[in-house]
Design a protein around this nucleic acid. Sequence first.
DNA 1: CTCTCATATGTCAACTCTGACATATGAGAG
DNA 2: CTCTCATATGTCAGAGTTGACATATGAGAG
Lengths: 197, 197
Amino acid sequence: MTSMLGHALLSLLARRPGTGYDLTQRMRRPVGYFWAANHSQIYPELARLEEGGLVRHRVVEGAGPRPTKRYTITAAGRRALDGWLRSPVSDPPTRDEETLRVWSLWTLDPPSALAYLRARRTQHATRLAEYEALQAEVAAERGAHEPTQPLWSDHAALQGGILGRRAEVAWHDWMIDRLGGTAPPTRAGDSVDPPTG
Amino acid sequence: MTSMLGHALLSLLARRPGTGYDLTQRMRRPVGYFWAANHSQIYPELARLEEGGLVRHRVVEGAGPRPTKRYTITAAGRRALDGWLRSPVSDPPTRDEETLRVWSLWTLDPPSALAYLRARRTQHATRLAEYEALQAEVAAERGAHEPTQPLWSDHAALQGGILGRRAEVAWHDWMIDRLGGTAPPTRAGDSVDPPTG
DNA sequence: CTCTCATATGTCAACTCTGACATATGAGAG
DNA sequence: CTCTCATATGTCAGAGTTGACATATGAGAG
């Protein structure tokens, strides 16, 4: 019944309460790395969750120019989140523009294809470096790394991002190699096996 | 102007012409691995592409119970496809249910989390085995592996799928390991470095 | 003879998401 | 004094997507 965005918001509120504006910021980073949403989706979705009794709000004065609504997850909301995590993962329809382009790449002349792949490779390497920097920050945080603490999930989600980006970089290197090109010089973030775990 | 689905269809028709029904099948496999679509989207989209002069159809009798429309890409369609491949990749909003769940996994008791991760790991390993089998088929095909042939893109797209799935399996093993569990026994498709290139 | 399946093409209501539009104030820069 | 930015909350048109509904025939199984 609850949408994926609804579950993302419940997950956010399970960590700590927040206003719509605050949740919008937290959706941008870090949630946006794996589930993007605008404030124009978030405000109506919060209203829907409240209608279903999964969240509750109290008006807080003085926090900004307008009356601010501070949302909290309810017991029913926690149950909904738990039920979702125990439900089977819906095999999601894949939508990957990058692979679609590669699947069409044979129509380009090889030099253009090579230029395309090199540009993409650089972008993935940059993203990888960003994730590795974040992971270093998370790893440096003291304590609370037990599996029942939010920090554990932060760490695990980032590790997924890192492994995924490394796979993208390796994939592009593989393709560039097969097109007879040379990979760009190694930069920060191109690392292949630093001890990030 | 043209949607992503439109480009997927142009890419499909650049390989060879086909009817709406035929394109629906080809969208299921292999295109569905990276861009899913139903026939209820495909028929209207073909009409839109035709309106824009990017494809053309001729009615073919005898192919089925109804008059069948056989679509072909036009010169304008090929130009549109080329222009798309040369345009910058739109940084797409990420929507990854799997990572969202992991980010919420700290709310589950560790045994449940472990059971969840083991089930997902098995599913990714199965998908990996499927891709590797397809890759073996593609690799066995004679000739035409040059970068300007469709087979080159088939091969490259599959390689992306394989590296991506391997990363997912490795990620889940990493998480299972950190939850203090033991990985399930190695099965076909769990391979870590077969010479698939 | 009937049932089911593959062929073959379409429509439609509901839901999600995007990007723009709209409103309003306090703080700080120039 | 004015401009811009962060705060803070919303609406809305349009596009994309899903899943069901709708129609119709030929081939093969039982």
